[in-house]
């Protein structure tokens, strides 16, 4: 396969302009912007590419839940999200894997939102969109793993434990313990 090129002056100018553009985006990407304060910009961030992939290890939130049936005490804390098995077909289509990645994205978002809660307003967090989504996620995972007979008069609680990527979950610390919710 060969390419035919006619590189005239205007094309050369175009290349030079884009070379400068490349230098500018590389320079801008080295600036560390910690947090986008505008929620509107945050929601439209698909329009502003960021290429800092796998930059550094970070604290990863791990989700746990526990269930209380009837008047019994709460059971043990259980991991809410289970790792998937790899499939060759996931190269073509990977809805399950991408949903799990979206769940982890939600956990990350909850952690970010918690950091922006002002002192003294922690109680309001349980009414935030992130918290409510997390509650729905845990409820969904519990319902997927138990029979309908077990659902009656059941309640659940969840917690987020922050763990440095690659480290054991025991080394982490709890950053959020939820209220009790009816199943």
């Amino acid at each position: 396969m060969t390419a035919n090129y006619i590189v005239n002056a205007s094309t050369l100018n175009l290349v030079l302009i884009f070379a400068l553009y490349f230098a500018a985006i590389v320079f801008l990407s080295t600036l560390r912007i910690k947090y986008v304060s505008s929620r509107k910009v945050y929601l439209f961030r698909s329009l502003f590419p960021s290429w800092r992939f796998f930059e550094d290890l970070s604290e990863l939130p791990v989700l746990y839940h526990r269930v209380r049936k009837g008047t019994k005490d709460f059971g043990d804390w259980m991991p809410s999200l289970k790792p998937l098995e790899r499939k060759f077909s996931s190269v073509l289509l990977n809805p399950g894997g991408n949903r799990l990645l979206a769940y982890y994205g939600l956990l990350q978002q909850v952690e970010n939102d918690m950091q922006s809660v002002e002192d003294g307003a922690e109680h309001k967090f349980s009414n935030s969109v992130s918290y409510l989504l997390l509650e729905r996620l845990v409820r969904e995972q519990i319902l997927l793993s138990c029979s309908h007979a077990e659902e009656k008069n059941a309640a659940f609680q969840f917690k987020l434990r922050s763990v440095l990527q690659g480290e054991s979950v025991e080394s982490g610390q709890d950053i959020l313990v939820s209220l009790e919710h009816d199943l």
């Binding site: 290429w51 550094d56 290890l57 790792p83 998937l84 799990l100 990645l101 690659g166």
Partner: peptide, 29 residues
């Protein structure tokens, strides 16, 4: 290129620790 620039600036990437951490925290078994 940008992904490479940010990685080479990180000690844990240069020592392999970051890659180990990412591989261990995959959503797959």
């Amino acid at each position: 290129f940008i992904a490479g620039v940010v990685k080479i600036g990180r000690n844990n990437w240069r020592t392999g620790a970051a890659l180990r951490g990412f591989l261990r925290s995959s959503v797959y078994q």
